[in-house]
């Protein structure tokens, strides 16, 4: 049985930190030159927290998100997710870990154009081995939670930008993950739709108790998070707790 049907969070048995990064270094090598994307990042996120990662373009926000989520490898340091050291897992184990405990929302929505909204949403469940009928039921439920139950049979090309991102959110949450990684989730949306999507994320964070790490340029989005981490040149330069964040 998939683990996604587990107990509601936050679970007292979970470690104090949902995410823990210690002295993480990541360098890209290209055509003989080196780009130091992350220079010894140390960073912790508590279960159920929404953290915004902000900073200028090229400061390493997306690289940090990719490394923390296990999509990319690090050169040195330690990353623990829910207490599990990612470097101890091989590629398959990391993939399974992602499938069971994580969800993703991307700036470009990254829905698969050949699948309908509900088929996109049910993918994370199918890869965990859930039966098709059950996966379909839960995917429809997830779409209903983001207000898109009527869009289930429609393909991404037939949806608006906001609808697509809501489908992406439904896909991210369908397996009831511990952590949702959101890379510029509103970067491709107009301000009104962006606000709607952010409302949705915050509401789901409350109802689902999932941890959210949101990479954003938008101070308005950052202001609605529990904590803002500012990055520059591959390092965390400042952390702040916005006033609005506590009240949201």
């Amino acid at each position: 049985m998939p683990e996604t049907s587990g107990a509601p969070r936050p679970d007292p048995s979970l470690p104090v930190n949902a995410i823990e990064a210690l002295d993480v270094v990541k360098t890209y090598h290209s055509d003989g030159s080196q780009v130091h994307a992350l220079r010894g990042i140390t960073f912790r996120v508590a279960p159920g927290e929404i953290v915004a990662v902000m900073g200028p373009s090229g400061c390493g926000k997306t690289t940090l998100l990719n490394c923390l989520s296990g999509l990319d490898r690090i050169d040195s340091g330690v990353i623990r997710i829910g207490g599990t050291d990612l470097s101890s897992l091989d590629d398959d184990a990391r993939t399974r870990h992602r499938a069971r405990r994580m969800g993703f929302v991307f700036q470009l929505f990254n829905l698969l154009p050949v699948l309908s909204a509900v088929e996109n949403a049910e993918l994370p469940l199918l890869v965990t081995g859930m039966k098709a009928a059950e996966a379909r039921r839960r995917a429809l439920d997830a779409l209903a939670r983001v207000g898109l139950e009527d869009a289930a049979p429609r393909r991404p090309a037939q949806l608006s930008g906001g609808e697509r991102q809501r489908v992406a959110v439904a896909r991210a949450l369908v397996n009831q993950p511990d952590i949702v990684w959101a890379d510029e989730p509103t970067g491709n949306l107009d301000s009104q739709t962006a606000a709607e999507v952010m409302n949705l994320i915050v509401a789901l964070n409350r109802s689902e108790k999932a941890t959210f790490v949101v990479v954003t340029h938008d101070p308005g989005i950052g202001a609605r998070c529990d904590r803002i981490v500012h990055m520059r040149d591959g390092q965390i330069v400042e952390e702040e707790t916005p006033v609005a964040g506590t009240a949201r």
């Binding site: 398959d92 993918l123 994370p124 890869v127």
Partner: peptide, 16 residues
Amino acid sequence: RQHIGVLRAVGYTRRV
């Protein structure tokens, strides 16, 4: 390429 990235992100292993 991007689709493969998405599939890998949501849990498709290399073998799948």
